[in-house]
Amino acid sequence: MDLAARLAELQQRTLQHREVLLTEEAAKTALVMPFIQALGYDVFNPGEVVPEFCADVGTKKGEKVDYAICKDGKVSILVECKPASVELSINHAGQLFRYFSVTDARLAVLTNGVIYQFYSDVERPNKMDDKPFFSFSMAALKAGDVKTIEAFSKATFDIERIVKEAGNLKLQSLIRKELEHEFAEPSPEFVGMLAKRVHDGRVTSAVKDNFGKLVVGSIASLVRDLVNERLSSALNAASPKGDDDASSGEVDVDDIGISTTAEEISGFHIVQAIASRHVDPKRIIMRDAKSYCAILLDDNNRRTLARLHFNGITTKYLGTFTAKDEERHLLGDLTDIYKFETQISARITELESWKGDGAA
């Protein structure tokens, strides 16, 4: 199982259990240790992952960091954990600040099992920065996050490369926040800059006021277009259609009137994450139709794993299968799909046991 599949599985666990993990120990056991394992480290090897790591600093005696991840006998990463219900802040990183300067570690992680914040010494050598250079939420994992997380895995860990990239990641994060702010509420400076570029004549207060409204609308339109473009690309990647689709009988061959939504793509990825426990996630394919969105094993319309009935205005259903019989389950939220992991897993076992194509 590759890193993306392991993280998808951990994301499922996070969404299911985060509300009941009220203590630090619970978050460490249920979420943080599996994350360290997903990165390829052996949490049961004290020479590689040291729990309750202690390195007395000055007058601070007996203080401990939750985990120290070692490579070649030296501490590489320090990890400090908090309960899943706690909102992380720099005030929780006291031990990390102190230990950072007295160990070989140049990478520190502050986490509550859901949010992970990565720190280094980008601004001053051997002194941990007070702002993370990278952070992500396990509950809302993005494809770009997985690519960045891979750099911290045991197989590819290169601290010099990580620290070099950390500066760029930190700047990108700050730029992104500024852009998000400008997109939500364009500043007078931003509006004025755009007005000067496209307006012929003097930029008066009235011109700026008018441009302010136009900028907000233009940004919203641009974002919608970009999202639609990305969704179309994702659909094309997830739903390759061969010449034999016309005779499949499983989905409508006439694409007119078919509109794949963001919810359908998200639902597909949840089913794919569940299925990745049993089969290569690349074998799970989505094919949209007018009345439902089919999720297939091996891109075979006779091996239907599940169906997403998301066309209703107020109701959405997940269809699971036993042999040729479909059972529909009402979904209050997309994450409810995880409640039917047993049915999806059983269907995979059933499909894998069939000889040939089987029938669905």
Results as ranks from 00 to 15, higher is better:
G242S: 11
K61L: 07
G40A: 11
A262N: 11
A206E: 13
D42L: 02
L231E: 09
V146G: 07
R124K: 12
R161V: 06
I90A: 00
K131A: 00
E25D: 14
V109P: 13
I162R: 13
V102M: 12
K339E: 14
D336E: 11
Q172N: 13
D130I: 04
H329E: 10
S266Q: 13
R18Y: 12
L39F: 01
M286R: 08
T314Y: 08
F152E: 04
N112K: 04
L141A: 06
D252A: 11
G144F: 06
R124P: 05
Q16H: 02
V20N: 08
I219D: 03
L110D: 02
H17R: 14
L179S: 07
L15H: 08
G319K: 06
I344T: 02
T304V: 15
D2P: 15
D129V: 00
D200N: 14
A30R: 14
E52R: 03
E326N: 09
P51N: 01
G312T: 14
R6K: 15
L308W: 05
F53I: 03
G249Q: 08
R6S: 12
K282T: 14
Y116T: 00
D129T: 01
C81E: 02
L39A: 08
P83A: 03
E9R: 12
F53K: 05
A68P: 15
M138V: 00
G319Y: 00
I344W: 06
L214R: 11
M128T: 02
D42S: 10
